[in-house]
């Protein structure tokens, strides 16, 4: 379940044009649950952040404005929220 959600998050980031995990060489480690990354450092532009938030709301019912994406903390933190949503 957790690894499936990790894969969905990675796919979502790719769909939003965000490949920062790949560029840092930690995408596989994140998928395996062995690495975490601050969402605020993913280098999302405003439009990517908007697409990311729309998907979070549509798929997981988690509502957040694009300007507040950094408040989500890290990707692991986001996964914890999604598990609870």
């Amino acid at each position: 379940m957790a690894s499936a959600t990790r894969a969905e998050i990675v796919d979502l980031l790719h769909a939003c044009g965000v490949f920062t995990l790949q560029e840092h060489g930690i995408e596989e480690a994140f998928l395996a649950g062995e690495a975490d990354f601050p969402i605020g450092e993913l280098r999302m532009d405003s439009l990517s952040a908007m697409e990311f938030c729309i998907a979070l709301e549509n798929t997981w019912g988690l509502s957040i404005a694009p300007v507040d994406v950094g408040r989500l903390g890290t990707l692991d933190g986001l996964l914890a929220r999604l598990a609870g949503s």
Partner: peptide, 11 residues
């Protein structure tokens, strides 16, 4: 004010 509200279900 909305930004300070807890992150959660769509409002």
């Amino acid at each position: 004010r909305r930004a300070k509200e807890p992150i959660g279900a769509p409002r």
